[in-house]
Nucleic acid binder design. Structure first.
Lengths: 257, 257
DNA sequence: GGGTCGTTTCGGCCCCCGCCGAACTGTGCC
DNA sequence: GGCACAGTTCGGCGGGGGCCGAAACGACCC
């Protein structure tokens, strides 16, 4: 598509313009990005990265906008395929449409927080404590992140349960260990392009990788089921329970952060 | 961070408003997305996904905007860390700032083209032929994509040069094969978070994975160096040369698409 | 039935931002 | 020096879109 010389005959100014682009790539990209380009919509998505379903009103209060505003934003996000909704009585529950959306958001956030110029500092005490709690341990859609997530990832690697030989993979020892702990991985579908078992996910507080993918999700689910961790408040922050501290120490040699 | 009830005392309308958000997550995300939310800027990035450096004027003509408009867009993209510039005489060359940016753009584009609602149909004959050429073989920043990219990825897997055991990895046989072809992989840095050797990259025309990462880049570089493929025009489309057709058949049993 | 509450639709305001042309700077080439 | 060309800066225009409040709708609970 060789660039053509720009011939811009001066047109009467108020005439309806002919379509600008014959689309030289990027309109779909722009449309998707536009969904996330608004601070309020971005805040919605960011909140939903905790992996749970929120009601429209909760999101509105969270982002400090009027319910009417939130309603419109949600409709756009759903129409764009980023969110899925579920109506229950007079409530409208929304959640991220798929793990793929979560991955996309994580990647974008990670790049935005670290790749983009300087590190920003928190603006209020409340925000600082929230950030500190989240830095210690939090969810990343459906797996662990924060210092806890990084520590677990490090331990799995150090003990040879996961290997980093030209791509992350669960080792034979890792498979045995998982079986011994009765942690189940979903059966591996032969299809390439399916969800990877182990996915490295860059953490924006630690600037280190932790484990996503099916393994990360299975570990987190197990940890929640066995009450090793529990959620704090309505955000993404987590607390390690006494039982959890013991389990981490005995199974992986990890001290809860 | 419990949502607080919205108390919105009616204020005199023209008064400067207090800052809306105390940032409940997402402003950095929104700022990054805003860079890509404009069709012109998105077109720039999409064009730059061919991995080469373009001048400001080339991009302006490509996207059909005035040079002044392009100049402003480029400054914003550079300030946002998405592009890098290099001045040469009276030319301003820009390219994607890093492979990480390319990955991000690929992921977004892939999601936007497939995940978002229906498949769009090309609007003109020129666009259709361009799309057809790109579907056959094209670059994806620094590696192969399109039917050719998918075919090569399939062949590598079928011949056991790359394995998909819980994460893609180059096999021992693969390493030998690469050495025999004198294709060099960059030395593996022990650091997790460094560029993965093999990365699965979803293709928006084929809806199939092809190979990115350092291996994908090395293969593509080799193919260009040995004139197995050459670029068509200024876009991302590629042509397989006769030499290239022979090499693909003999080395991998792949028929050029 | 009446009150409350979560959500939606609508109208209107205002700001942001992408666009251009014109004028200017600076480089390269005769 | 003079011309051509790449890029930048600036002023101004116009439209899109985010925001709100008011009003309507429907679910739920007395």
């Amino acid at each position: 598509m060789p660039p053509t010389p720009s011939t811009h005959p001066t047109r009467p100014t108020l005439q309806p313009r002919p379509p600008r682009h014959s689309d030289h790539g990027g309109t779909a990209l722009a449309a998707l990005a536009a969904l996330l380009a608004d601070p309020t919509r971005a805040a919605f998505c960011s909140a939903l990265l905790d992996g749970r379903a929120w009601t429209a009103g909760e999101l509105a209060r969270h982002a400090r906008v009027a319910p009417s505003t939130a309603s419109e934003h949600l409709s756009r996000l759903i129409a764009g395929g980023l969110l899925a909704e579920e109506r229950q009585g007079r409530h409208r529950y929304v959640r991220l449409a798929s793990p793929a959306v979560a991955t996309l958001l994580e990647d974008l956030t990670s790049f935005a927080e670290s790749g983009g110029s300087g590190t920003s500092t928190p603006r209020s005490l409340g925000e600082a404590t929230r950030l500190s709690a989240e830095a210690r341990a939090r969810t990343c859609y459906d797996h662990l992140a924060g210092r806890l997530g990084v520590a677990v990832a490090d331990a799995l690697l150090a003990r040879g349960l996961v290997a980093d030989e030209a791509g992350l993979a669960v080792t034979e020892r890792g498979r045995e260990w998982l079986a011994a702990q009765a942690i189940e991985l979903p059966p591996r579908s032969g299809r390439r392009g399916a969800r990877p078992v182990v996915r490295s996910c860059l953490d924006w507080t630690e600037r280190r990788s932790h484990l996503g993918g099916a393994l990360g999700a299975a570990l987190f689910r197990t940890a929640l089921d066995r009450a090793w961790v529990e959620r704090i408040g309505s955000g993404r922050a987590l607390r390690v329970t006494p039982d959890g501290g013991r389990a981490l120490r005995e199974l992986l040699g990890v001290e809860a952060p």
